[in-house]
Design a protein around this nucleic acid. Structure first.
Lengths: 336, 336
DNA sequence: AAATGATGAGAAAACGTTTTCTCACGTTGA
DNA sequence: TCAACGTGAGAAAACGTTTTCTCATCATTT
């Protein structure tokens, strides 16, 4: 309930042990020369009085703050949180803490946050966003600390980590084929999204020349609409639908159910994102492509650490493979 | 592309200006005595060479790091992100950055994070979680820094901020009454949740002795089930349904639509949480209670700041009012 | 003309560490 | 017996700031 700083410093330990602060420092860091009894005694006393070195003082000297910044404009957190979780998990073992800065597409706010982090001597900055083909509203080039871009557009020559959309599409098609689907269509988001394009291209490549890709919004409503279109004409209806995200997939599955089409018996559906809140709640639960965002976060964390510690890292765009999470909407889930 | 620390320090400024570091410091901080020309000249030179004071060095001296920690076990981020957003928004103006630590109900991990933050001399810690009636798996009492609990259980005598569940329930009932509903029921989550209990109690108090509360899971499926029960017997069916969260509400609305019951013409539905991804996508879009989590975050941020700066703060549980977000599922939305 | 006071600016200490340098002491070898 | 050497431990500098103290210089007053 009191005062300034009752925190125990290295001086307190030195006094308690009857030695100098240098000796304490060397004892605790296992450096320097000294009698091993002295070392052990000092260590014992240090833990006894609950000494924990002040990281700030240490950083001042070492030029390493064991702190990194995560800059994001994904306020909703759909992508940022798994990423954050991976970053944190990878770095906590190295004693590194993460500043989270939510900048909402506001350049001024972004600058304030970046400056604050630089002032606090972060060892590096990880930039992330909600769209792979958009960059944050702040220029991170030429900063005095390394920068890694994860799931957002980065400047040329920088390190950019992202999910391999094409791989995800291939995984989905492969699965649909494996459960015996012949006429597979792709219902996805607007073709103004690079992710949508890349998935669609890979989809076309995997399915062949007759491939059908329907672009729309990233919404349930578009899923409903697409089903209405596909089942509305007199053309043959597909037996497999690969959706651009889980919301579309949810719309598709609901629409099919309302139509009396059985999923997965009559039609197999695969989503994208593995957003559990959607994938799990859909009836039947969605088989869906997971972008491994947590793993992407781990990679980003370890990469920024490499850079901070001066190790060489290959620049350029690096795409991490996706994985398929099998639930019920595609069928074939019991065969395993 | 090189070396150690090209960062410009106060010494560089002093050299460039031909004065001592003390003079520079006083010039930039508008303290001390000096000719105003000197002051201005130094300021000009400082911005010229791009000097930014090293916050670490400053912190070492002032015992203030302008850094707080946010501890959460809400990996999904449903509650943490709006809170975080509010905290960050409130604190960025004061130059304070936020460490986000995701501890997944793992006491050891929690301790590691807390220790790392303490070593880094955070000015305070905000604890938050996914449930108001559960505490984090780590003891935050007796820490050398102030702690504020937001949306999670705190130790007695601490500062605890949370949403006023009863207020939310009252808002919902009030609205349903206002649009002319007479027979209102409450479909909510398990009665093992304090939130569910408090809302249910307030609901009963507002509706009267004949109030009907149905407890189930926090899922869409339970919404469907509840509708099946309510419309299954030969009792009169309700014309207003207040749901414990937006997922239940979504289930209820979907089930009613499938039944041919019109929302909001025949039945008004109100949700809880204002989880936009659900509230917006439901047809019709959900009128729902918003817990003002961002505001709660702001309060938490300002409170921790007050405590860090030694201002007195009243301990105890503080409940922040909710607000109703009007969309279409309740009706009466066009009257305004 | 001397004493007083105001003004401008620098020196030094401090924050809590780590690291390098120095030194006293005791042991070994010739 | 003396030089050389190894060992244990402390002194001091350094990191980049802020703050207190001291001290010239110059203008004002008597």
């Amino acid at each position: 309930m009191v005062a300034r700083s009752n925190r125990v410093t290295i001086h307190d330990v030195a006094r308690a042990a009857g030695v100098s602060v240098s000796t304490v420092s060397k004892a605790l860091n296992d450096t320097g020369r000294m009698a091993s009894e002295t070392r052990e005694k000092i260590k014992a006393i240090a833990t006894d009085v609950g000494f924990r070195p002040n990281a700030l003082a240490r950083s001042l000297l070492s030029n390493r703050s064991f702190t990194v910044g995560l800059l994001t404009n994904d306020t909703y957190g759909r992508f940022t949180l798994p990423l954050m979780s991976g970053i944190s998990e990878a770095l906590v073992d190295h004693g590194v803490s993460v500043f989270l800065c939510a900048i909402e597409d506001d350049p001024a706010l972004a600058k304030v946050h970046v400056d604050a982090m630089l002032d606090k001597q972060v060892d590096g900055i990880i930039a992330t966003g909600k769209r792979v083909d958009r960059s944050l509203p702040v220029d991170l080039a030429g900063l005095p600390v390394p920068v890694v871009y994860a799931f957002t557009e980065g400047v040329p020559g920088s390190v950019i980590l992202t999910a391999d959309d094409a791989d995800g599409a291939r995984l989905a098609v492969e699965r649909l084929r494996k459960v015996g689907r012949k006429w597979i269509v792709h219902v996805t988001g607007p073709d103004s999204f690079v992710s949508a394009i890349e998935r669609a291209d890979a989809f076309r490549q995997a399915v062949g020349p007759e491939a059908l890709v329907l672009h729309g919004a990233w919404t349930e409503a578009w899923g409903h609409e697409a089903v209405a279109m596909l089942w509305g004409g007199d053309k043959p209806t597909p037996d497999g639908i690969f959706c651009g995200n889980d919301q579309i997939a949810r719309g598709v599955v609901d629409a099919l159910r309302e139509k009396g089409v059985r999923v997965p018996e009559d039609v197999s559906v695969i989503g994208f994102d593995n957003w559990e809140i959607f994938a799990d709640q859909t009836r039947p639960a969605l088989t869906t492509v997971d972008m491994n965002l947590k793993e992407l976060g781990r990679m980003a964390g370890l990469t920024i650490l490499d850079l901070a510690e001066g190790r060489a890292v290959e620049a350029g765009l690096r795409k991490l493979p996706c994985k398929l999470v099998v639930r019920q909407s595609c069928g074939g889930d019991r065969e395993i």
